[in-house]
Amino acid sequence: MQDWTEDWTGMVGGATPSACVRMQGRSAVVLAELDEAECARRGDDGPGIESWEALDLLMTLPQGESVPERVLTPAQKLLLDGLPEWAVERSGGNVVRLSRVPLRPLLAVAFTRRWAPGLRTAHVFSSMCAQAVVLPSEPGDPLIAIEADQYGVGLGVGAAGVAPRSVVVPEPYRLRRHTVARWWFAEHVYGLLVAQKRRALGAGENSLVDRQRLDQRL
Protein backbone atom coordinates (compact mmCIF):
# COMPACT_ATOMS: atom_id res chain seq x y z
CA MET A 1 0.00 0.00 0.00
CA GLN A 2 1.21 3.52 -0.78
CA ASP A 3 2.56 5.45 2.19
CA TRP A 4 -0.44 7.27 3.67
CA THR A 5 1.28 9.10 6.50
CA GLU A 6 1.61 12.45 4.70
CA ASP A 7 -2.20 12.61 4.45
CA TRP A 8 -2.94 10.85 7.74
CA THR A 9 -5.38 13.49 8.96
CA GLY A 10 -7.71 12.81 6.03
CA MET A 11 -8.18 9.27 7.30
CA VAL A 12 -9.31 10.40 10.75
CA GLY A 13 -13.07 10.71 10.74
CA GLY A 14 -13.20 9.61 7.11
CA ALA A 15 -14.18 6.36 5.42
CA THR A 16 -11.25 4.33 6.77
CA PRO A 17 -12.57 1.57 9.07
CA SER A 18 -11.87 2.46 12.70
CA ALA A 19 -12.64 1.19 16.18
CA CYS A 20 -11.98 2.43 19.68
CA VAL A 21 -9.52 -0.05 21.20
CA ARG A 22 -8.55 -0.26 24.86
CA MET A 23 -5.18 -1.72 25.84
CA GLN A 24 -3.43 -1.57 29.20
CA GLY A 25 -6.07 0.81 30.47
CA ARG A 26 -5.66 3.31 27.62
CA SER A 27 -7.91 3.97 24.62
CA ALA A 28 -7.13 4.96 21.05
CA VAL A 29 -9.03 4.98 17.78
CA VAL A 30 -7.34 2.40 15.56
CA LEU A 31 -7.67 2.85 11.80
CA ALA A 32 -7.26 -0.27 9.70
CA GLU A 33 -6.98 -1.53 6.14
CA LEU A 34 -9.28 -4.53 5.71
CA ASP A 35 -8.39 -7.69 3.82
CA GLU A 36 -11.65 -7.52 1.88
CA ALA A 37 -11.39 -11.07 0.55
CA GLU A 38 -10.79 -12.56 3.99
CA CYS A 39 -13.58 -10.51 5.59
CA ALA A 40 -16.00 -11.57 2.85
CA ARG A 41 -14.97 -15.20 3.27
CA ARG A 42 -15.71 -15.02 6.99
CA GLY A 43 -19.06 -13.46 6.25
CA ASP A 44 -19.29 -11.38 9.44
CA ASP A 45 -20.51 -14.49 11.23
CA GLY A 46 -18.95 -13.55 14.51
CA PRO A 47 -15.98 -12.05 16.32
CA GLY A 48 -12.40 -12.78 15.44
CA ILE A 49 -10.19 -15.48 16.93
CA GLU A 50 -8.90 -14.10 20.22
CA SER A 51 -7.39 -17.24 21.73
CA TRP A 52 -3.61 -16.85 21.83
CA GLU A 53 -3.16 -20.61 21.98
CA ALA A 54 -5.34 -21.12 18.89
CA LEU A 55 -3.56 -18.38 16.95
CA ASP A 56 -0.20 -19.82 17.93
CA LEU A 57 -1.33 -23.16 16.52
CA LEU A 58 -2.66 -21.57 13.32
CA MET A 59 0.68 -19.84 12.76
CA THR A 60 2.35 -23.26 12.64
CA LEU A 61 -0.04 -24.50 9.92
CA PRO A 62 0.70 -23.43 6.33
CA GLN A 63 -2.29 -21.66 4.82
CA GLY A 64 -4.12 -23.66 2.20
CA GLU A 65 -2.03 -26.82 2.63
CA SER A 66 -3.09 -30.13 4.16
CA VAL A 67 -1.47 -31.26 7.39
CA PRO A 68 -2.17 -34.74 8.82
CA GLU A 69 -4.01 -34.41 12.11
CA ARG A 70 -1.98 -37.30 13.50
CA VAL A 71 1.00 -34.96 13.90
CA LEU A 72 -1.00 -32.74 16.27
CA THR A 73 -1.19 -33.28 20.01
CA PRO A 74 -4.52 -33.95 21.75
CA ALA A 75 -4.42 -30.41 23.15
CA GLN A 76 -3.94 -28.96 19.65
CA LYS A 77 -6.85 -30.99 18.29
CA LEU A 78 -8.98 -29.65 21.12
CA LEU A 79 -8.05 -26.11 20.07
CA LEU A 80 -9.15 -26.91 16.51
CA ASP A 81 -12.50 -28.12 17.86
CA GLY A 82 -13.11 -24.68 19.34
CA LEU A 83 -12.39 -22.71 16.16
CA PRO A 84 -15.16 -21.32 13.91
CA GLU A 85 -15.93 -23.27 10.74
CA TRP A 86 -14.34 -20.64 8.52
CA ALA A 87 -10.98 -20.94 10.30
CA VAL A 88 -9.95 -24.46 9.26
CA GLU A 89 -11.15 -27.32 7.09
CA ARG A 90 -10.93 -30.84 8.50
CA SER A 91 -11.54 -33.90 6.38
CA GLY A 92 -9.99 -37.29 5.70
CA GLY A 93 -7.73 -37.04 8.70
CA ASN A 94 -6.20 -33.79 7.45
CA VAL A 95 -6.54 -30.16 8.50
CA VAL A 96 -6.17 -27.10 6.26
CA ARG A 97 -5.80 -23.60 7.64
CA LEU A 98 -8.15 -21.29 5.77
CA SER A 99 -7.94 -18.18 7.91
CA ARG A 100 -5.45 -15.37 7.62
CA VAL A 101 -5.06 -12.00 9.30
CA PRO A 102 -8.29 -10.06 8.53
CA LEU A 103 -6.85 -6.55 8.50
CA ARG A 104 -3.74 -4.42 8.80
CA PRO A 105 -3.70 -1.90 11.65
CA LEU A 106 -2.53 1.40 10.21
CA LEU A 107 -2.69 4.07 12.90
CA ALA A 108 -3.65 4.41 16.55
CA VAL A 109 -4.92 7.91 17.34
CA ALA A 110 -5.14 9.13 20.93
CA PHE A 111 -7.60 12.01 21.30
CA THR A 112 -6.62 13.81 24.47
CA ARG A 113 -6.62 17.25 26.06
CA ARG A 114 -3.01 17.01 27.20
CA TRP A 115 0.12 15.89 25.38
CA ALA A 116 1.74 13.75 28.11
CA PRO A 117 -1.22 11.33 28.56
CA GLY A 118 -1.57 11.14 24.79
CA LEU A 119 2.07 10.19 24.34
CA ARG A 120 1.73 7.45 26.97
CA THR A 121 -1.31 6.11 25.15
CA ALA A 122 0.51 6.17 21.82
CA HIS A 123 3.38 4.19 23.33
CA VAL A 124 0.98 1.38 24.33
CA PHE A 125 0.19 0.83 20.63
CA SER A 126 3.73 1.29 19.32
CA SER A 127 4.30 -2.43 18.70
CA MET A 128 1.14 -2.73 16.59
CA CYS A 129 0.98 0.23 14.22
CA ALA A 130 1.88 3.88 13.68
CA GLN A 131 0.69 6.30 16.34
CA ALA A 132 -0.61 9.86 16.58
CA VAL A 133 -1.96 12.23 19.21
CA VAL A 134 -4.69 14.77 18.47
CA LEU A 135 -5.12 17.75 20.80
CA PRO A 136 -8.21 19.98 20.80
CA SER A 137 -6.13 23.17 20.54
CA GLU A 138 -2.65 24.34 19.58
CA PRO A 139 -0.08 23.24 22.18
CA GLY A 140 1.40 26.16 24.06
CA ASP A 141 4.81 24.55 24.37
CA PRO A 142 6.78 24.42 21.08
CA LEU A 143 8.86 21.57 22.50
CA ILE A 144 5.85 19.27 22.18
CA ALA A 145 6.17 19.16 18.39
CA ILE A 146 9.89 18.45 18.74
CA GLU A 147 9.19 15.62 21.18
CA ALA A 148 6.52 14.18 18.88
CA ASP A 149 8.97 14.17 15.97
CA GLN A 150 11.66 12.61 18.16
CA TYR A 151 9.37 9.70 19.11
CA GLY A 152 7.93 9.32 15.61
CA VAL A 153 4.43 10.08 16.90
CA GLY A 154 2.10 12.15 14.74
CA LEU A 155 0.67 15.33 16.23
CA GLY A 156 -2.56 16.91 15.12
CA VAL A 157 -4.85 19.69 16.30
CA GLY A 158 -8.59 19.73 15.83
CA ALA A 159 -12.07 19.42 17.29
CA ALA A 160 -13.93 16.15 17.56
CA GLY A 161 -15.52 15.02 14.31
CA VAL A 162 -13.31 17.23 12.12
CA ALA A 163 -10.17 16.12 10.31
CA PRO A 164 -7.32 17.55 12.39
CA ARG A 165 -4.58 19.81 11.13
CA SER A 166 -1.28 17.99 10.94
CA VAL A 167 1.58 19.45 12.97
CA VAL A 168 3.90 16.41 12.90
CA VAL A 169 3.57 13.49 10.46
CA PRO A 170 3.59 10.05 12.15
CA GLU A 171 6.52 7.80 11.41
CA PRO A 172 5.43 4.80 9.28
CA TYR A 173 5.20 1.50 11.13
CA ARG A 174 7.73 -1.07 10.00
CA LEU A 175 6.73 -4.69 10.44
CA ARG A 176 9.77 -6.68 11.49
CA ARG A 177 8.12 -10.07 11.88
CA HIS A 178 4.71 -11.65 12.20
CA THR A 179 3.79 -12.48 15.78
CA VAL A 180 0.88 -14.03 17.62
CA ALA A 181 0.43 -10.74 19.47
CA ARG A 182 -0.04 -8.75 16.27
CA TRP A 183 -2.40 -11.35 14.79
CA TRP A 184 -4.38 -11.26 18.04
CA PHE A 185 -4.53 -7.45 17.86
CA ALA A 186 -5.85 -7.60 14.28
CA GLU A 187 -8.48 -10.15 15.31
CA HIS A 188 -9.48 -7.99 18.27
CA VAL A 189 -9.94 -4.93 16.07
CA TYR A 190 -11.84 -7.05 13.54
CA GLY A 191 -14.19 -8.25 16.27
CA LEU A 192 -14.83 -4.67 17.36
CA LEU A 193 -15.60 -3.66 13.76
CA VAL A 194 -18.04 -6.56 13.36
CA ALA A 195 -19.81 -5.63 16.60
CA GLN A 196 -19.81 -1.98 15.56
CA LYS A 197 -21.41 -2.84 12.23
CA ARG A 198 -24.11 -4.90 13.93
CA ARG A 199 -24.93 -2.08 16.34
CA ALA A 200 -25.09 0.39 13.46
CA LEU A 201 -27.50 -1.85 11.57
CA GLY A 202 -29.65 -2.45 14.61
CA ALA A 203 -29.62 0.86 16.44
CA GLY A 204 -28.37 3.64 14.16
CA GLU A 205 -24.86 4.89 13.52
CA ASN A 206 -21.97 4.47 15.90
CA SER A 207 -20.03 7.65 15.18
CA LEU A 208 -16.36 8.46 15.51
CA VAL A 209 -17.38 11.71 17.19
CA ASP A 210 -18.69 9.81 20.22
CA ARG A 211 -15.45 7.86 20.52
CA GLN A 212 -13.40 11.03 20.26
CA ARG A 213 -15.41 12.69 23.02
CA LEU A 214 -14.86 9.66 25.19
CA ASP A 215 -11.10 9.69 24.65
CA GLN A 216 -10.79 13.47 25.19
CA ARG A 217 -11.60 12.88 28.85
CA LEU A 218 -8.05 11.58 29.36
Rank of each mutant, 00 (worst) to 15 (best):
Leu106Glu: 00
Ser27Leu: 12
Ala116Leu: 14
Leu80Asp: 14
Thr121Asn: 10
Gln24Tyr: 13
Ala132Glu: 07
Phe125Gln: 00
Leu143Phe: 15
Leu57Val: 07
Ala132Ser: 11
Leu78Gly: 14
Ala160Asn: 13
Leu57Met: 08
Gly191Ala: 02
Lys197Met: 06
Glu33Asp: 11
Val124Asp: 04
Gly13Thr: 02
Pro74Cys: 10
Ala181Met: 05
Arg90Val: 09
Glu85Met: 13
Asp3Asn: 11
Leu106Tyr: 00
Val29Asp: 01
Glu85Leu: 12
Ala200Ile: 03
Val12Phe: 09
Gly191His: 02
Met23Tyr: 15
Arg217Tyr: 01
Leu34Gly: 10
Leu192Pro: 01
Thr179Lys: 01
Glu171Val: 08
Gly25Pro: 03
Phe125Leu: 01
Leu79His: 14
Ser51Ile: 05
Val71Arg: 03
Gly191Asp: 01
Gly48Met: 01
Pro68Ala: 01
Gly46Asn: 08
Leu72Asp: 07
Val96Trp: 02
Arg97Ala: 00
Trp183Phe: 09
Val101Pro: 00
Ala32Asn: 00
Val101Ser: 01
Met23Trp: 15
Arg42Phe: 01
Leu72Cys: 04
Thr5Cys: 06
Leu208Ile: 00
Asn206Ser: 04
Leu107Gln: 01
Glu147Met: 15
Ala195Ser: 11
Val124Tyr: 08
Gln63Leu: 05
Pro117Val: 03
Pro74Val: 10
Arg176Cys: 01
Gly10Asn: 11
Val169Met: 02
Gln216Asp: 11
Val153Trp: 03
Pro136Tyr: 12
Thr112Cys: 12
Glu187Trp: 04
Gly161Phe: 13
